[in-house]
Amino acid sequence: MTRLRWTRGRAGDGTGEEPAAEWIGCDDAGETIARVVRLQGPLWTGWRLYRAVALDEEGRVIRLLPSVPEGAGWLAYIGGQVVGRADVPLKAVRAAEAALAG
């Protein structure tokens, strides 16, 4: 399994000491390889309310779901692709590393 160096990314809503909503996995050169992001919400798109939203590094929506699927509040995300889902971030981290290992 490919091991990455994981660091805390964006926090809850960016205020105060919110728990991390994102973990960033980098290689030895410090390049971002994978991200684990928490589904957040709700988001009103103008015509529908989404209860689960995953955002990319620039805050763009990468996944919209009507609600958080059971046991899948975290997404493992590599190069624009969702490669795994889990109920807790550590499991999603392992899913990302397993996907990298092929």
């Binding site: 994981w6 660091t7 805390r8 728990p19 991390a20 973990w23 807790v88 971030p89 550590l90 499991k91």
Partner: peptide, 17 residues
């Protein structure tokens, strides 16, 4: 246990990583 328990504390996650 680690997966579940550490998810409530970011500093613990970092220690694990």
């Amino acid at each position: 246990l680690l997966d579940t328990a550490l998810s409530v504390d970011d500093a613990a996650m970092e220690e694990y990583f």
